[in-house]
Design a protein around this nucleic acid. Structure first.
Lengths: 338, 338
DNA sequence: CTGTTAGCGCCTTCAG
DNA sequence: CTGAAGGCGCTAACAG
């Protein structure tokens, strides 16, 4: 169907190997010959078979990125920003991205096996790291290059980028405490996600340092979606001893509690203060604007790819474990309690 | 590096072709032989080289999806939902997705050429169709299967899924009119995007049928982001003869105008009514909930893949041009003017 | 039932 | 300066 070297050979009368060399810019080709060959290539709209190149070279110039549909399906603006960052940098370095969705359990691993074992990708970027993450074990075992967005606890020396979210949540919680809050609810996530552990720590530490006892009754577990933020927000804010502030571990759930507060007729920033985490563009434009940790996810996507690229190509990675400091933005969703 | 057929051959003592046949389940292999081979494969964690298979078969079992970074970069929740839909169905049919970001102009076409001409994908899904879309011309010329999300105007018979957004916007505009509005602002997009044309038509037709003159002074052009919705909303709502209602062509811009209204101290649904388009999960949870057109984008993603699959595999596509009726949801962002 | 052979498209020695 | 040959890993036709 499409034009191959052999077609150019037929057209020009030269052999396949001469054509190949001319196209690759080798110096041992007669300029006149090269000219004819390049013209024919252009005329017939020749593009080399990437597949053949890949087989020949043993390299795919492709990285993998599997969207975890583990647990709930989510439409997190976060992911497309991340993917765009990865993609822009990949495109710059002439790499492609193989994207898939991965289920959970054995099915997830099967997906990795197919892509990695089948030699389709040279490396992967892994998100939503979990406690005892089977993906990480598998990739280590198969010596496949990868970079984590987030950390794992059971392996040292795996390269990652992460934001210090323990400090992040701690800063936000402390900010609430300094604003006068003593009863602060917490909306977190199931603790098989690694970042949950850090964020929970941040919350508890801030309370402890202020001498506020930890009250499990006002800690709820959601699934990162707007909807779960709303229903858990309703639950917390409907209590007779309702908290005057709520810390949510991501923006979407925080914005969900906005809905809950509004439904209950509470004014955010006055009747109840709320904080989030991620800094998605909606957080700035919410009403009132949301106090949160701003994560430069597009930039992180670019950097993740850069690191993976170096790892794949055996370049010096420099720092391989990057823990970025959180950048808090204080906005009007936080005020003093009545 | 990884285990290949030849390694299994060495291990078991059989020839490469016997191994291959055993693994593929051919019937002309001695059951005992097969058993030994399967065991060896399992033990050595054999996975066939997808690249070799692809070269051999001439098929990649991969489709392409290029995220248009044309114009502004956007973190539209829309895209990740769409990608998840495509991905889930692709995974079911054992297809992979090659994702890239594409710039604009000649750079965009180059990206397509590389992926298509290089034979990396069997087909593509194209979004954000434009007037005189060079991607469509190229894919038609190269006989590459593709399905559009959206329509094009200059070619008949290209397969697509689209929502009848002319009707959609018309319904919403009419709803505003029936609620008593006569002065209705419009926030739209640059008219190189095809859907802009249809949405603009819907707006104008609704006005016309109600005998309301079209006033270009209260029509603004944004870039689909929250931010542009906000700044254009401010512009419209700061006019002395400010509109009592605003129709935005997508939810993000509509929610941007929420910010504008709130900044100006206007109550949405009372001082100003607002409508969107897309039905992202935020629209339901906004305060007040947004009147919009609900687009089942995850489902559409699945269906896009299904159509592309059929096209690629020469199955009967049935209807190849699917225009879905808009599904309006009327919520509290619309009320009667003061 | 099993092995040998050829070829997908490309690049890269090696000869001439 | 150019062509012939080999091989990346796999499958399918053909012998035996």
């Amino acid at each position: 169907m499409s034009v191959r070297l052999k077609d150019l050979a037929k057209q020009t009368g030269y052999s396949i190997s001469t054509i190949s060399r001319a196209l690759l810019g080798y110096s041992d080709v007669n300029p006149a010959t090269r000219k004819k060959i390049l013209e024919a290539a252009k005329r017939l709209d020749y593009y080399p078979s990437q597949i053949a190149k890949q087989l020949r070279s043993g390299r795919t110039r492709t990285i993998g990125f599997l969207i975890p549909t583990y647990g709930e399906r989510f439409s997190d603006p976060f992911f497309i920003e991340l993917l765009t960052g990865i993609g822009d940098m990949a495109s710059l370095m002439d790499y492609d991205i193989l994207v898939g969705t991965s289920g959970d359990g054995e099915k997830e691993l099967e997906e990795y096996r197919r892509v990695v074992g089948g030699g389709r990708v040279e490396g992967l970027i892994i998100t939503r790291t979990r406690i005892r993450d089977q993906r990480v074990s598998y990739l280590l075992k198969t010596h496949t290059p990868f970079i984590l967005l987030g950390r794992v606890l059971d392996h040292k020396n795996v390269p990652y980028i992460d934001i210090d979210s323990r400090s992040g949540i701690k800063i936000l919680t402390r900010h609430l405490i300094e604003s006068g809050h003593r009863r602060i609810g917490f909306i977190t996530t199931p603790d098989d996600l690694v970042f949950t552990k850090f964020r929970n720590q941040g919350y508890r530490e801030a309370l402890k340092e202020a001498g506020i006892p930890y009250d499990p009754d006002i800690v709820e577990i959601g699934n990162l979606t707007l909807e779960s933020g709303k229903s858990l927000g309703l639950k917390l804010l409907s209590r007779k001893d309702r908290p005057t502030a709520i810390v949510a571990v991501n923006d979407l759930m925080a914005l969900g509690t906005y809905g809950a507060a509004q439904q209950l007729g509470l004014t955010i920033g006055r009747d109840v203060s709320i904080t989030g985490y991620d800094g998605i563009s909606l957080s700035k434009n919410a009403h009132p604007p949301l106090t949160t940790i701003e994560v430069p996810i597009y930039e992180i996507g670019k950097q993740l790819f850069e690191m993976l690229y170096k790892l794949i190509n055996h370049e010096n990675l420099g720092e391989s474990q990057i823990l970025l400091p959180p950048k808090a933005v204080f906005r009007e969703s936080v005020g003093s309690p009545a």
